[in-house]
């Protein structure tokens, strides 16, 4: 796996815990949505840096009260055709103003990079064989967009009437 953030490959410093393992002291951890629902109060009190992992089945609304406590939201794409994560990311960014990291993981493709970026993803868990330079090229394919989205770039209608 290669973790890409802000266009640069970085080490993943997060520990992605399963639902049983206790949080190691001083670590930055992510937990599943189910574990978050069960243990969020205890986790917040424990003083570790926190993130949560969502799938398309999870109701993003249920973590929105806790967004201040979350440094990372990981959104899983079980298949590249499953587009729910795009909506979840936009809701977090645009409706709730979430400014932490929103990371895409799972089955994500180079040709989805710019769409995901526009929806507010800023980090990508790339499959091991992904060519990072090529992935970054994919971000440059389309330089204009008709719709405003989470990346807050000016849309074509806004440019036309600036």
């Amino acid at each position: 796996m290669t973790l890409l953030k802000g266009g640069t490959p970085i080490e993943d410093s997060w520990v992605h815990l399963d639902d049983e393992t206790a949080a190691p002291a001083g670590a930055a951890i992510t937990v599943s949505f189910a574990r978050w629902q069960a243990e969020s109060e205890a986790l917040k009190a424990s003083g570790v840096t926190l993130g949560v992992r969502l799938t398309g089945d999870d109701a993003a609304e249920e973590i929105t009260d806790d967004l201040n406590a979350l440094q990372l939201v990981v959104i899983a794409f079980p298949a590249f055709t499953d587009g729910r994560g795009y909506s979840i990311a936009r809701i977090l960014r645009e409706r709730y103003g979430y400014e932490g990291e929103v990371r895409a993981t799972g089955n994500i493709l180079r040709d989805q990079a710019s769409l995901m970026t526009r929806c507010g993803f800023d980090a990508f868990d790339l499959a091991a064989h992904t060519d990072v330079a090529d992935w970054l090229e994919g971000l440059k394919d389309i330089t204009l967009e008709y719709q405003p989205a989470a990346d807050r770039r000016r849309s074509v209608p806004q440019i036309r009437h600036a």
């Binding site: 590249f80 055709t81 499953d82 587009g83 795009y86 909506s87 936009r90 710019s114 769409l115 995901m116 526009r118 929806c119 389309i142 967009e145 008709y146 719709q147 989205a149 074509v156 209608p157």
Partner: peptide
């Protein structure tokens, strides 16, 4: 047409 063209959120609908 313009709004739906390359809409980032709705390219992988059910």
């Amino acid at each position: 047409r313009q709004w739906s063209t390359l809409h980032p959120e709705f390219t992988f609908l059910p």
